[in-house]
Amino acid sequence: MRKKWGFRLFQTAMTALVLLVFAFPFIWMLVASFKTQSQIMSTDSFFVFDPTSVNYTSVFKEYNFLKYISNSFIVALGSTLFSLLLGLPAAYAIARHHLHKLGLLILVARIIPGITFLIPWFILFSQIKLVDTHLALILSHMLVGLPFIIWIMISFFEALPKEIEESGLIDGCNHHQVFLRIIMPISGPGVITASLLSFIFSWNNFMFSIILAGDKTKTLPIAVFNFMSYSEINWGALMAAACIITLPVLIIALLAQRYVVSGLAAGAVKG
């Protein structure tokens, strides 16, 4: 009994230690967002200081952060929705027709570093006058989001029993109706998981935005980058902006946590 109690205590202590290590950067970010520049640079104390909201005020008044939030939301939501529209039928076809070579090809497209697409993508969008538009960013983010959604949903669709589809066909549905009315409703956890991960990637993407975005379509990661200059880094505003960027994704992740866990578990086990 004592050994079991001791093991549980050790397990709890190790879990707390790991959580502290991973959570410390977020704690430091949150605390620093309420400090002045001099307080952040000081090593005298970490938690003992006079909190101020001047950093958040500066972010919204001086840097027009609402515009960047709007741009990031449009691009992230647009790329996720279009990726779902194309990716879900593709993943279902690959899973049901056992097109494993095509699935491997899609995985290779996901593995290729996105930076290899930057110059061709920029030349293409320059020719058709799409640089500094939301559409250009949405399409570029789909280069990663679409293969990601397809690869996640292939495993999920393969885990679904074929008898479910056969019963729908017997009841008079065609294949399109079976997919829309039977398969999609029971694939909710997998779709939510794929959507959330794709949205987070697009929300945090920096590489495509720094090349294809301009003053009209600048997204949050690019806006945060502007807080760093050659001579100085505005740490207070930078930490406040980082908290603002993290908050929406954190809320979405907490609300969809149980769906993400069940979606990943369902996709990992084939029936």
Results as ranks from 00 to 15, higher is better:
D215C: 00
I182A: 05
K216F: 01
S195L: 14
N205F: 14
L220G: 03
N204G: 11
N205A: 08
L196D: 13
S198C: 14
L180F: 13
V191S: 12
R181H: 15
T193W: 10
S195V: 13
G214R: 05
N204Y: 08
L220Q: 07
P189D: 02
A194Y: 15
W203C: 10
L180P: 14
I186W: 04
T217A: 09
I200A: 15
S195E: 07
F206E: 05
G214W: 12
F199I: 02
S187K: 02
W203R: 00
L212C: 03
P189T: 00
I183F: 10
G190S: 11
I186D: 07
S198D: 03
S209T: 10
T219R: 06
K216H: 03
P189W: 05
F201D: 08
I183G: 04
L197P: 12
I182Q: 12
I211L: 07
S195Q: 10
G188L: 11
K218Y: 12
G188A: 14
F179M: 08
S209E: 02
N205R: 03
G188T: 15
F179D: 05
F206I: 07
M184R: 13
L220I: 15
T193N: 13
I222H: 04
A223K: 01
F201M: 11
T193I: 02
F208E: 00
S202N: 01
V178F: 09
L212R: 00
A223E: 02
I192G: 04
N204F: 11
M207Y: 09
F201L: 05
T193G: 13
L212H: 06
N204A: 06
F199W: 04
K216S: 02
L196I: 14
F206L: 11
F206G: 03
N204I: 00
A223C: 11
I183D: 06
P221F: 01
L180M: 12
K216V: 00
G190P: 14
S195W: 13
D215Q: 10
S198G: 05
L212P: 08
T217N: 06
M207T: 15
I182P: 15
N205K: 01
I200H: 13
S198R: 10
M184W: 06
M184L: 14
V178T: 09
I200T: 11
L180W: 14
I222P: 09
I210Q: 12
I211D: 05
V191A: 13
I192Y: 11
F201P: 08
I210E: 02
I183V: 11
L212Q: 03
L212E: 04
L220F: 10
I211W: 12
S187V: 01
T193V: 08
M184H: 08
I192Q: 04
F206T: 07
I192A: 10
I186H: 14
P221C: 02
G190A: 02
S202R: 04
S195Y: 12
F179L: 06
S198V: 00
A223T: 07
G190E: 03
F206N: 04
G214E: 03
A223I: 02
N205C: 03
T193K: 09
